[in-house]
């Protein structure tokens, strides 16, 4: 399957990549290519120019910061899944990364690419929401921080502006929180039919703060605020879990498809999946 020709840039420095994107606003940024290249092969995307970020050193690496970790946009899924720092400080991120695609996809795919692509059934967006992650976006004019809760706005649509690219993800220290990612994968594609990421601060048997990220069921990953509120101030007992789970779709338009999962099925599966996740950490 041949791809339509395109122009190709492979900058060595972030500054050069951002300048290229400013000069060519129609260009697409290439990270691991696990979403963009299939779209191009199927002629669903035909960018005139690709800016390959594979050599940009500033986008690599995972570092500990005073209040958490910073993950470079070009960090690959297999690195996230196996990295000692991520496993210690943000296990929910490592766990979700291990669910992405298959080994070959995890060897190429990146956190920046996955989040910027914003597939409504991708795993990492749910983990970002549960982790209270902050997306670091940069353009030639400077950088800005976008809370994950504001980042995903529609199917394949994010808060990133033209000329901007995702350069890193900042995750607050989550050590000590009860975390879990529960996923029901589509049997053929492996994408989430439903995916629920939870991160709970629990003290004295009482949930102090709850974060629930949901993927796969709506036009974009979202935080289940009503379910979070139902948990906060309560113990993780069966009644509270049932109540919170019943609120997982509150205020959201749940999508259905004719082939595999109707909206009604997904809504039910979401409730079951959140309930399983909460039982897992209770």
């Amino acid at each position: 399957m041949s791809m339509t020709p395109f122009r190709y840039a492979r900058p060595m420095a972030l500054r050069d990549a951002l300048a290229d994107l400013t000069e060519h606003p129609e260009a697409r940024v290439l990270a691991g290519g696990m979403s963009l290249l299939p779209l191009m092969k199927m002629d669903l995307a035909a960018p005139e120019r690709l800016i390959d970020l594979g050599r940009v050193q500033e986008l690599q690496g995972i570092t500990e910061t005073p209040d958490g970790i910073r993950i470079g946009a070009m960090t690959r899924h297999f690195e996230l899944a196996s990295d000692e720092v991520v496993g210690r400080c943000a296990p929910i991120v490592a766990q979700a990364a291990a669910h992405v695609g298959d080994p070959q996809v995890r060897h190429r795919g990146t956190i920046g690419g996955s989040l910027a692509h914003a597939d409504p059934a991708a795993d990492l967006p749910a983990a970002m929401l549960a982790a209270d992650a902050v997306i670091e976006a940069a353009s030639a004019d400077g950088s800005r921080m976008i809370p994950a809760a504001d980042f995903f706005v529609g199917p394949l649509v994010t808060e990133l502006r033209p000329g901007e690219m995702l350069v890193a993800v900042r995750i607050p220290m989550l050590q000590g929180r009860r975390q879990h990612y529960e996923k029901v994968p589509h049997p053929a594609s492996g994408y989430a039919v439903v995916g629920v990421a939870i991160s709970l601060a629990v003290a004295g048997g009482v949930v102090q703060e709850a974060r629930i990220g949901v993927t796969g069921v709506a036009g974009h990953a979202y935080r289940a605020h009503a379910a979070e509120r139902a948990l906060e101030g309560e113990g993780l007992n069966p009644g509270v879990i049932a109540k919170a789970s019943s609120l997982a779709a509150e205020g959201e338009e749940i999508l259905g498809d004719a082939v595999y999962a109707s909206a009604e099925y997904r809504r039910h599966l979401l409730q079951v999946t959140l309930s399983r996740a909460l039982q897992r950490v209770s």
Binding site: R10, L37, H107
Partner: peptide, 29 residues
């Protein structure tokens, strides 16, 4: 499949398995 599903095209790049139908040769300098 030529759509990065089947894995028949898997090769190793720097020791890691990848699906060669979904990688640009020029990005592997």
């Amino acid at each position: 499949c030529d759509t990065s599903q089947c894995g028949a095209c898997t090769v190793l790049v720097d020791g890691l398995s990848v699906k060669s139908c979904t990688v640009l040769a020029v990005s592997l300098d």
